[in-house]
Structure formats: C-alpha cells, structure tokens
Design a protein around this nucleic acid. Structure first.
Lengths: 189, 189
DNA sequence: TCCCAGACAGACAGGTCTGTCTGCCCTTTG
DNA sequence: CAAAGGGCAGACAGACCTGTCTGTCTGGGA
C-alpha cells in the first residue's frame, strides 16, 4: 500500500464526514476508523485535526465549487448571462440530491466563528466563489462586477439556507431575483 | 433570592453566550459559573442543556425577531411597503453593532442539523419570521404573500451571512434587490 | 536473506463534556 | 423557634475528545 494512498483515503473520508456533519461532530477516532487508518498514520500526515480540515476545505473548493457548480453552470449556458443564471439551475439539482449537505464554507464559518483560523479560511473560499461570479459578470459586460458579485452571492447563500430549511424551490426564487439583478446591472446607454 | 430569579439569570446568561458562540462551544460548567448558579440549581430548572437551548430560542424570538427587527421596522416606516424595506435599515444598524452575532436560528440549524430537535425548532422560528414578512406583504397589498415572503427571506438570510463574512453593506445590497422584488409582486392591473 | 520504512492496532494521558449527588447555608413560613 | 425548601459549592461518574506512544506486521530494495 503506497504512502500516498493512506493520505488520500483520510482526505476522502474527511470529505464525506465533514461535509455532512460539520467539524466538531466528527472525532479523530471515528474518522480513522472509517478510513481504515491507524492513528499514528493520521498524525504522520497531518499535524492536527485542524490541518485536515484545511485540506478538506481545499478539496471542497475543487470538487464542489469548481466542478459541481461553476464548471457545470458554464456547460449549461451558451452565453455568460445564461451561464450566470444556470448557477441556480445547478443549485436546483443540488438541492434535490439526497446527500445535500449545504455549503461547507458557510457551515464552518458559522460553526467556528469568523475569527477562528478555519472560519477565516472559509471566508477566503467564499471570496473565491465570488471571484468566479465576478469573472462571469465581466464576460457578460455588466457594470460594477464586484458589487454585482456581492449581491449575487447574497442570493446564492440565502437560497442555500432556505434549501436547508426544506424549501426545494429556493433556487427558482433566487433565480427570479437574479434575473432582475442582471437587468439592474446592465450598462446604461 | 427568589426562586424565579435564578432561572431568569440562567436564561439571560445563556442568551449572551449562546447567541455569540453557539451551543456546543458553551459548556454547562461555564454557563453556571457565569450565571453564578449551582449546578443542582440549573438542573432543578432545566431537565437538560437542550431544554435550556429551547428556552433560549424562545427568548431570542421575543428579544431579537420581534423587538429588535420587526417592531423596529414598523416604527421606522409609515406604510407597509416602507416598513418592509425598513427591515434592511434595521439590519444595517444591527450589522454594525460590535456585538453582532448573526442569526441564532440559522447558526443552530447548521450547527445541529435539520433533523435534530433543536434544528427543527430553529426551522420553526425561521418560519415565524417569514410569517411577520407575510403579514406585512398582505398589508402592502402584494400578491402571493407566501411566495413573496420566501423570496424576501432569502435576501434576509443571505445578507446576514455576508455580514458575518464582513460585508457591512450587505443590507444595502439586499435592500436594493428587495425593492425590485416588491415591484415584481405588485398586483397587476 | 536481511533490513527498515511505513502501515495497523490500540493503550494511555490529560482534558473536556453532561448530568447526579452530597453537603452546607440562608430565608421564609407555620 | 423550628422545619423545610431552595440556593450555592463542588466532588464524582462515565463518556468523549485530541494527541502521544508502544508495539506488531508487511513489502520492497540492497
């Protein structure tokens, strides 16, 4: 068994457990038991549980933000404006998955607090999400892309919380407001 | 010292600690120490920590939802439409308070999960907030007050998360979208 | 064949958590 | 005045947490 295999198994298991149940609810003992890894092996690869959480956040950014949402939205739409709106189509599918687990960056931000290192890291990854939106807004030729992306992000985060409460149509409501927001940010002649 | 005084001291202390730091981060020992109450006294008044959390949520609904937001918004505006929009003026002031602690209902929902009794209770209190919005929407003569309140709530929750990230102008962004939402829900002639 | 890095298993330390229980003191009431 | 009830302080049980450390086993290269 290769030395890198154990590490990857740890991160993959952490992804499953942390995304669904948060950080504090998952102990190191349960984690290594699920991963089939010895405790010494775990601490050979990670100095602490928090370092594993940082690795999880990075993986979450790759797997969820980039692959599941941004790339998917770009595939769905043929113009930048359509691609922006397609984010909420991707949300609609995501909300209905039986393993829907809300946004780990928001979860950890609220669970650990904005001043905790993990909370601050989550804030950084949320800013990365806004960066993707800003990029699309610029491609769509909207004005004030930074302002636009912050408003847009409010719709994304609010709809995720609503979906967590059980409103599976939150993506449609957000998309309707998103359409109005795009009109509002179209460059004036 | 009256028997009810100890109970109120416990709930008041819980409000301060739970609102700012969440549930799991505050232990019973710290709580009773802060309240100046014996552990036996605590467990005479509450069967468990979770029962105290339920009492906290109820107090949070009274103090925060009703007094700090809804009643304040009603005072600020003279028409139902103005009162709706004034919610985000109240949010603007609230976001800037040095003891800003986000929305406890969202925090606990995400911290405990939607299936946990405390998560379900939080969902109920979030629904009560939508009830206030729905009431104002009906007074304003908007159509589809239930749909409207769900969309409106997305703006409220999203802006709270953004404020937690540090965007103090999130209330203004949300208010701008809220204005468009009201126009969208005006009854068609 | 031998060696050794790295995996696994799990005991252990030191601290935390919730919740129970024993004392002691004060105040109120009969 | 005495009894009783409630408050305070804190020990304690049992479970859990993170992180350290001691062993044992296995597979690949010299």
């Amino acid at each position: 068994m290769s030395p890198a295999a154990a590490r990857q198994r740890i991160v993959d298991t952490a992804y499953q457990l942390f995304a669904r149940r948060g950080i504090r609810d998952v102990g190191v003992n349960e984690l290594i038991s699920s991963a089939g890894v010895a405790k010494a092996t775990f601490y050979r690869h990670f100095a602490s549980k928090d370092e594993l959480v940082l690795a999880f956040l990075e993986q979450r950014d790759r797997v969820w933000t980039v692959d599941l949402i941004v790339a998917d939205a770009r595939r769905r739409g043929s113009t930048p404006t359509e691609q922006l709106l397609a984010i909420f189509d991707a949300f609609g599918d995501w909300f209905r998955r039986d393993d829907f687990e809300a946004c780990s960056f928001i979860n950890i931000l609220l669970e650990m607090g904005a001043t905790h290192p993990l909370g601050r890291a989550s804030i950084d990854y949320l800013a990365k999400i806004r960066g993707h939106v800003k990029q699309l807004a610029e491609e769509a030729g909207l004005r004030d892309a930074e302002d636009f992306s912050r408003s847009w992000h409010i719709l994304m985060k609010g709809s995720i919380i609503s979906a967590t409460e059980g409103d599976l149509d939150a993506s449609k409501r957000a998309q309707r407001m998103a359409r109005m927001l795009i009109e509002d940010f179209r460059p004036q002649p």
